[in-house]
Write a protein that binds this DNA or RNA. Structure first.
Lengths: 116, 116
DNA sequence: TCCTCATTTCAATATTTCAAGGATTATTGA
DNA sequence: TCAATAATCCTTGAAATATTGAAATGAGGA
């Protein structure tokens, strides 16, 4: 993840509708969710959802694929990992004073391979 | 870190000059850097640096204090930790498929209490 | 007090972002 | 091929953001 990508990704995450869309896609996993279904779930007009999905796609945080007449979006896990890592390493220079407290998150605990 | 704070923080990080300013402040640590010195280092006009520092301050990622005739800014480590944690937990739902790769960063390795 | 330095504030402009609606493209099944 | 459906594309206008230079504010020293 280079700086240009990170800047775009941060911009993509700084908008409420997009953050909600991304969260839905993260939980949905690799199988993804169709654009129309997303529009229904976030209660935003289809054209507006399309606009924000395109922004997310431009940032590399989600990818799109066609499935029959639907276009299915899914979260790009690698990009999200990369962004977290960018935030810790490039932006925060790996400062333990910053990174260590963040690692107290439940998902980072040993023996907690999966979320709870 | 609640969602509203995170949205503002992501917005603050999505601008090149601000990202550069923050990086300098992270490395500088708690003693911080004066606004004028920052303007020189990022080669941006003083008024523009002032604008961006205020944005960073509004997002909670930096704080300001007066020292004689200088105003010294410093990175808010807690806010950065909180943002990393938000990204892993709230946004990524703690998915191990996302968080685990990010933890491969050098600063997260056991025995690597400090960055290398 | 007066002067100077550091920084902010203000006003004007340029650029980007956002939301909504209608038109267009792509796919499926009859 | 035609009709129906799903999604995007395009345009419009409003709002937010970025940049610059000039003026104002605040602190320290002669």
């Amino acid at each position: 993840m280079d700086e240009r990508q990170a800047l775009t990704a941060f911009g993509a995450l700084s908008q409420e509708t997009r953050l909600r869309l991304l969260r839905l896609l993260v939980v949905a996993g690799p199988e993804g969710i169709a654009a129309g279904s997303l529009a229904g779930q976030v209660e935003v007009s289809p054209s507006n959802v399309s606009f924000h999905l395109k922004e997310l796609e431009r940032s590399g945080l989600v990818t799109a694929r066609r499935d029959a007449r639907s276009i299915v979006y899914s979260a790009e896990y690698d990009a999200l990992s990369g962004l977290i890592r960018f935030l810790m390493e490039d932006c925060c220079s790996g400062r333990p004073e910053i990174c260590a407290p963040a690692l107290a998150a439940p998902c980072c605990q040993p023996g907690e391979g999966a979320r709870r």
